[in-house]
Design a protein around this nucleic acid. Structure first.
Lengths: 307, 307
DNA sequence: ATAACTTACGGTAGACGTAAGCATC
DNA sequence: GATGCTTACGTCTACCGTAAGTTAT
């Protein structure tokens, strides 16, 4: 039994039972992967994949178990390599992060800025995805950490550390009637035309529900999917918008006025997602500290070992 | 990184940092093992063992972590092989059991008798050891299961399933005055000379403490370390003895009379010891069922996955 | 015809064992 | 000198890639 053979099995599964694609992912020729699989199945004396009409179409029951154990073994192998890298030069390697668009754009990017200066030899990769996929990527070990609001289902392979809160505010052009008020409420906001996130976005839906619960129907003049588009629309005077406070900066966003509205809209909690049993490089802990200073290495290790 | 390299590391540790012995255990030449280690350390770029004066004397901090992960990976590998063997022919393989002397001699041996008939191609090995070592052997994966009373410390790698109780009785030669009594008590027993287990044995000490607590001092005419010696001494009329009920059989032990005494002496609990995360062959479950019918495969799997 | 897996075959890297070399006790 | 690890070297396996073969869409 070889780690390479197990790698082949996992990669074949990850590529929809297509040996050719798996071969590409493994930087190997297609027959080589075919033989890795064949030799492993011969050694174990049991089929791992279901073959129909000369193609792989699925895992046998046994194959499913193989896959689970193989994944764990391969994760352990990378943990070993990571640990080793930490022993001498802790300053080179790769840090892969999965995050939802907003966190990637602001919280993560801000942390990366200072991190990249401190670790010039660490390559940082940010993958954008929705919350469920972020968690999956971390669970699969594709990325060392994730930053997202929590999706509905959380596999027990991952650990979630609450980080910063996402508060909401109202953004308006300069010189808007709302700016005159001492304290704003939903009824004032709904008087003015509004630029909104598309429904598909979690934050968009959360805001919409607040209005619905009060029986209010804001007049949406534009729906957009990008934060920058929404901002530009507000600056252009198309309407006001409900926005994540973290996503707007008085310095950068000239032409925008910000009205705190955390009392009106639910704040959501950003979480850092880690994979249980994954060895984290020192610089990964450092990165997390830049993202959420309250999560020191000691605290994280305590959480990882507990339960 | 190769599984073989990891095997070498673990075996070197298991053999007191002696590469030569590890080589023998691995059925390989000594230079081969030396090179496995060297190539692994070179690949990882970090020392695993502490070398002083040209010899290995211990693990580095990193090496300790390597060892832990390596062990898990190798366990996973054997689990894979075991699972595979279960897929087609579930009737050949090896079953290794660690047990204390008494359980090995009676409970385990009895189960092995019928098991061996059912699985002629499964080789059974019984290792005798004291409770602490039994648990260690299971924790290390050296044996699939252990049968013993619980030692003081139980590592969390193992799972303990309560099995049969060990009750005590009084054995006497035929035609002994005690046999006339309807119900016996400590005060009656202490009147007669006694053959006893050596103090060193847990069961010997447990019995002795019962008398001491009552301020009674039985007259010990012989101390012996083997159950068979004690029995023979009783038959010979040297005295009576307190014995584990399971260790005496009216059929086999001619010349002995048995008086139940479970109300006088504490009964101890035998436990089946399993390693968490270890894949158990079907025949292993079958063996456990012969040992303790209440522990079905389903119940065991539930316990293994819980916590 | 194309996509996809397997078989065939030749080259090469690396793994292993024997033998020799060094160090320590 | 005995024990124990490393280096050196020759052999040989087995792994990999190229290329051809087979089968289903």
């Amino acid at each position: 039994m070889t780690l390479q053979q197990l790698r082949a099995v996992c990669e074949i599964v990850a590529n929809n039972y297509n040996i050719s694609r798996a071969a590409i992912a493994l930087h190997a020729s297609q027959p080589a992967v075919s033989k890795m699989l064949a030799s492993l199945e011969r050694e174990l004396g049991a089929g791992i994949f279901v073959r129909t009409k000369g193609r792989l179409t699925g895992l046998t029951e046994f194959g499913g178990n193989v896959c689970l154990l193989a994944r764990r073994m391969l994760h352990d192998a990378t943990s070993l390599a990571d640990m080793a890298a930490d022993c001498f030069s802790q300053e080179s390697g790769h840090l892969r992060i999965a995050a939802t668009h907003l966190h990637a754009r602001y919280a993560v990017l801000k942390a990366v800025k200072s991190f990249a200066r401190a670790y010039p030899n660490v390559g940082v990769e940010i993958t954008q995805a929705n919350p469920a996929v972020v968690v999956e990527l971390v669970a699969a070990g594709e990325t060392q950490l994730g930053v997202t609001t929590l999706p509905n289902a959380i596999p027990d392979q991952v650990l979630t550390l609450p980080a910063h809160k996402v508060e909401r505010c109202v953004i308006t052009p300069f010189a808007h009637p709302l700016l005159e008020l001492k304290k704003i409420g939903l009824h004032e906001i709904v008087k003015y035309p509004m630029v909104a996130y598309d429904h598909a976005f979690v934050s968009g839906r959360a805001v919409q529900e607040v209005f619905e619960r009060q029986g209010l129907r804001p007049r949406i003049v534009l729906k957009a999917t990008g934060a920058d588009v929404v901002k530009a629309a507000v600056v252009a005077g198309l309407g006001i918008a409900i926005f994540q406070t973290m996503a707007v900066d008085p310095e950068e966003d000239k032409g925008l006025a910000i009205i705190e509205a955390r009392h009106l809209f639910p704040s959501s909690q950003a979480h850092i997602i880690l994979r249980r049993g994954q060895y984290l490089r020192r610089f990964t802990y450092d990165f997390i500290a830049r993202l959420a200073p309250e999560w020191t290495q000691k605290k994280i290790e305590a959480r990882l070992s507990a339960r």
